[in-house]
């Protein structure tokens, strides 16, 4: 354990990065998932095709590959664009935080697309019809009737997606994100104690996932409050 002294700080800030990536990617993942599901369920052929391609590509390729492609791909693209304006520029560095967050949001968002789609289909058409009959617009029906009824059905699978997001954060260390696994690698290089260092990383991720799991359980309880006969 004494090997750990001097590394606690780094682990702490690494954990903060994990949480930051989680929160940012959670927001993006929900947005991608909702747009994807809405597109798949729309009557617009083009939207259906684009959303279909999205889920095929991001569910069908290794996550680490997507992270690498997005990181280096966006750096190369941005460099090329920047060089048009200023030929002196050699390389535009993309922050690993945002490249990585964007990548895992896209990946998990593609799974969420399918989860949300299924959940939207599970909403009883009666209340949607009633909402239209009351004169609500389709946007109002979406946000006030479809989504609030859908999320309860989506929640169990959505909890899994949140866990995937957290664990995928570790993958972002490969492009140089300062999260806990990255810290561990540095610590191992200095102390030569891989087991201890990796166990700490494991415990950090485990505690974050436990909090998420408990939160999802609480949300499920809340989401089903109107399904209990006794008030």
């Amino acid at each position: 354990m004494e090997a750990l002294s001097g590394w606690w700080d780094d682990y702490f800030w690494g954990s903060v990065v994990v949480l930051q990536v989680f929160l940012a990617s959670l927001v993006l993942m929900v947005i991608f998932g909702l747009i994807g599901a809405a597109a798949k369920l729309s009557s617009n052929r083009v939207a259906q095709k684009i959303s279909g391609a999205y889920t095929v590509i991001f569910r069908g390729t290794p996550e680490i590959l997507v992270i690498l492609l997005l990181y280096f791909g966006s750096a190369i693209t941005l460099t090329a664009i920047a060089q048009v304006f200023d030929p002196e520029i050699k390389f535009v560095d993309v922050p690993p935080f945002w490249a990585g967050t964007f990548a895992i949001s896209l990946i998990v968002g593609s799974y969420a697309t399918e989860t949300f789609r299924g959940a939207f289909l599970g909403v009883k058409p009666g209340s949607i019809e009633a909402a239209y009959a009351l004169g609500m617009s389709s946007v109002q029906v979406f946000f006030y009737v479809r989504v609030p009824e859908m999320w309860r059905l989506a929640l169990p699978a959505f909890g899994n997606h949140m866990l995937s997001l957290v664990k995928d954060t570790a993958l972002i260390s490969i492009i140089g994100l300062n999260e806990t696994l990255f810290v561990a690698k540095q610590a191992i290089a200095t102390t030569g104690q891989p087991f201890t260092m990796y166990i700490v990383v494991g415990l950090i991720y485990l505690s974050v996932s436990t909090v998420i799991t408990l939160t999802v359980m609480a949300l499920e309880h809340y989401g089903n409050r109107h399904m209990r006969i006794a008030a």
Binding site: G126, S127, A131, P148, E149, R152, H226
Partner: peptide
């Protein structure tokens, strides 16, 4: 409606 169609949530 026949089946009431209230908003359950």
């Amino acid at each position: 409606f026949q089946s009431f169609n209230l908003f359950p949530h």
